[in-house]
């Protein structure tokens, strides 16, 4: 009996599958092949191939000139050298972490705070909104240029206002390796906060007002309402913010590159990759090894995120 039912179910399932297959016209099949095939090809060509090529190249010594036969297998030499004798590597590694910390503990909370304030329908709300959002509209490279105008020791605003560059006394935040990162992180947070603000504001606007009204009727204070009602209700947005923050911290590049090519206290993993691969130097294997390190670091938040989102779906 049980076997009958089982076969019955199986037969039924098989029939249904066949039935569905029959209903697919040739046109549908072509369309499906395109819809699946093109993204597979694109991700394969633009993501998976370069990723594996980088991983492969990171074990080689190559100056990027000539055919594949000029690539020499080098084992783990690049990794060993990066970790032991390449002075900019560990500072770069640390700076990426500082960057992440600054965005996570200053930039993102500041953006959320601004969004929360703007959501209160204060006067000139739209005006503030535009002002706060401008840094996102400006390209990071321009932010780098602005930083020059403000912080350049010889001609910059800060130095001219608070020191005397005409007589050789300057305020040099960008040139001082101890201060440069701080100055740049302020700029990065400024930009990041406005990005976070706009996303979070959209989330707040979409929030059902009755939730807050209910909390208010129950006598909850503003802060309490925020932490007990609003914040949990916006969980999907919060996850997006976490992801954005991590991505922004790991891909940081433009601002430091335009300021001083990411040297002298502004080293980041991304600029070390560029300096080794893109420049006249062309240490392809060496740069690839740094790229693999960055990829490995990036995988940690990505895996946590993917794991989290699949868990929620299950």
């Amino acid at each position: 009996m049980a076997a009958d039912i089982a076969t019955g179910v199986r037969a039924d399932g098989a029939r249904r599958r066949r039935g569905r297959a029959v209903r697919l016209s040739n046109g549908d099949r072509v369309a499906m092949a395109f819809m699946v095939g093109i993204p597979v090809l694109v991700t394969g060509a633009l993501i998976w191939f370069p990723t594996f090529a980088s991983i492969g190249l990171s074990f080689t010594n190559w100056d990027g000139i000539g055919g594949l036969h000029t690539i020499h297998w080098d084992g783990t030499t690049n990794y060993r050298q990066i970790a032991t004798i390449y002075p900019p590597f560990w500072p770069a590694f640390r700076h990426n972490l500082y960057w992440l910390a600054a965005l996570a503990f200053i930039g993102t909370p500041l953006g959320m705070f601004l969004a929360y304030q703007l959501d209160k329908r204060i006067r000139f709300s739209r005006f503030y909104q535009s002002i706060f959002y401008i840094p996102v509209v400006i390209a990071p490279a321009i932010i780098g240029l602005i930083s020059e105008l403000i912080l350049s020791p010889q001609q910059g605003l800060v130095s001219s206002l608070f020191a005397d560059p005409r007589h050789g006394h300057v305020i040099d935040w960008l040139g001082n390796p101890q201060k440069a990162l701080g100055a740049v992180l302020i700029l990065a947070c400024w930009r990041h906060a406005s990005y976070v603000m706009i996303i979070y504001l959209a989330g707040l606007k979409a929030l059902d007002p009755s939730l807050r009204e209910a909390a208010a009727i129950d006598g909850a204070s503003g802060t309490r309402t925020y932490f007990k009602v609003v914040l949990p209700a916006l969980k999907p947005i919060n996850i997006v913010l976490v992801v954005i923050t991590v991505i922004e911290a790991l891909r940081a590049f433009d601002i430091v590159y335009i300021i001083n090519r990411g040297r002298n206290g502004l080293e980041l993993l991304s600029v070390l990759i560029t300096a080794n691969i893109i420049g006249e130097a062309s240490r392809i294997g060496y740069g690839s090894a740094i790229a693999v390190v960055l990829l490995t670091i990036s995988l940690v938040p990505i895996i946590i995120f993917v794991w989290n989102s699949f868990q929620e779906e299950a």
Binding site: L46, P50, T51, Y257, S270, I273, S288, L295
Partner: peptide, 14 residues
């Protein structure tokens, strides 16, 4: 170079 840098981040360093 920025674009290339970002690409490198995605593992596009080759």
């Amino acid at each position: 170079s920025g674009a290339t840098g970002a690409a490198a981040l995605a593992g596009l360093s080759a």
